[in-house]
Design a protein around this nucleic acid. Structure first.
Lengths: 295, 295
DNA sequence: CATCCTTACGGGCATCGTAAAAATT
DNA sequence: AATTTTTACGATGCCCGTAAGGATG
């Protein structure tokens, strides 16, 4: 079970075609076919159905191993390369849309490169060396860590925290309240904007409350569009309070129960000595609103 | 960076010798030498010092990637093998010393094989397919998960929970108390028995209290020997209450603050349909003392 | 000088590409 | 019939073992 074989296997699954995978990987179709045949022979199990090309049950299971494995392998490569090259002069950070808040934006050195990525991709980008630091946002209880996929091999530290708010259209019955409990709204019409705001699934898990079923779904990362949808009455959504309060035509009501907040965390590999990445982490580690717990 | 090379590399580090690694792996010394040379050429970094053979800084870093990678690779193999073979007839479980409590012992089917392993090895044994289920014990706050190394790719579920107790020699000044706060004892003389009881490091992390520095250290997994050391006044230690209360010549005082408990959890891969492993998990999932939180 | 690692070299085997055959829509 | 995967086959090159060469304590 060579990693090359796993790599072509995942490529075939991703592209749904032997030929396309071959083109992407720079192989012949024949070679790809042989790779898959070798894997299936080695594991004594069919991994793919042909026509249409799709993973079998065993193949799907193998994918769950292969994906993190290949990611980790790339991470190792990148880590060794970094160790040899010394600290980067210029900083590249991977960032989810709502993670770049005031505090972080203020401390980020000028001349940095910022790559906006989805929550699922941040850890991978940092591990593969495509970004020196990753910033993820999400909802979490005050002392819980943010649930970040694939972040096992990375170090995380909190960066910023602020209240969450429910975004309502102006004129909504609740719009005059100053605070709201989330469980009262479990059965409301919700807009799920997983790439922009807080994914409903994450809200459900963190609040440990059932409900929050998506009614309207919006892809993409445009907060203004999300605000417009809410203002037009397509449903409610949850955003960090400072962001929510700036959207026109809507009213933002802070969430007080359960005690969850919008948090940003920084992800990084074990860093070398100097460099702008380490400097930024040190600056971010300074206490701000939330006093650090005594070690 | 082939996984074969990584495997050879870790073997060389583990045995501190090219020749010994070659013997273990069934290669020639020459082949091992070529493997290491290939790795070092590929990564453009020296990974080992020769005479004595030891990892360089870069080598140590690579090890941190290679170890979990190879573990995961073996896990994938084992997983596929299991998928093909169907559920095992007889059950093999990996188990830390204090994990096999009354409830678990009662539910374990007769004819099972139990392999006692250290906390660090349980997850690996389950992933590599050497055990169908793993049982780990440890100290944790009531709603926190147990910190289990390398358990990322596994499913965990709580199995049993009971109070922790400090074990004192009979006649100790505190022996008449009915309950004790842990932080009062941070500076006591402690016995660290990481393979038997609760490792002091885990206690320190969970209780978030400094102190608990090891004074006497005991390796091995003999609870009676640990009890004898405490009885003889070599120091204090922490054990699950029911275990501690059965040890002669000592007094067990339950810990009330902070709110930490001794918990046992089960680890398993995503299981197939039938089989004794799944039956045992289902039985263990029945509520016992701690009512499960509503989903 | 004994031990251990490295280098040189040759043979076997794996892997890839070309090309033709088979299968499925 | 067209597209896509499989199989056959030959060449290239990788990888391992044998054996000789260095380095080190």
């Amino acid at each position: 079970m060579d990693t090359h074989l796993l790599r072509t296997f995942t490529a075939v699954v991703d592209h749904g075609s032997f030929s396309e995978a071959a083109r992407v990987l720079g192989y012949t179709q024949s070679a790809v076919s042989q790779h898959i045949a070798a894997l299936e022979a080695d594991l004594a199990t069919p991994l793919l159905t042909r026509r249409p090309v799709a993973p079998t049950e065993a193949g799907a299971r193998l994918l769950e191993h292969a994906r993190p494995l290949l990611l980790r392998l790339d991470a190792a490569r990148a880590d060794m390369a970094r160790l040899g090259a010394g600290p980067a002069k210029t900083l590249t950070v991977g960032c989810t849309p709502l993670a770049l808040t005031g505090r972080l934006a203020a401390l980020l050195p000028s001349g940095s490169t910022v790559r906006m990525v989805s929550r699922a991709e941040v850890a991978g980008a940092v591990m593969a060396g495509e970004a020196d630091l990753g910033f993820v946002d999400g909802a979490a209880a005050p002392s819980d860590p943010l649930p970040v996929p694939d972040a096992d091999a990375l170090t995380t530290a909190p960066v910023a925290e602020e209240p969450l708010a429910v975004l309502l259209p102006a004129g909504h019955p609740l719009a005059t309240r100053s605070a709201v409990g989330l469980s009262d709204l479990a059965d409301a019409h919700w807009i799920d904007a997983p790439d922009t705001g807080i994914p409903l699934a994450q809200l459900r898990a963190t609040a440990r409350v059932d409900g929050f079923r998506p009614y309207t779904v919006i892809d993409g990362t445009d907060v203004l569009a999300l605000g417009a949808l809410v203002a037009a009455g397509h449903g409610l959504t949850v955003l960090p309070a400072t962001v929510a309060e700036a959207l026109p035509g809507t009213v933002a009501i802070r969430i007080v129960t359960p005690r969850i907040a919008h948090r940003t965390e920084v992800l990084h590999t074990r860093l070398g000595e100097g460099g702008p990445a380490r400097a930024l982490i040190a600056a971010l580690a300074q206490p701000w609103r939330v006093s650090p717990r005594p070690a």
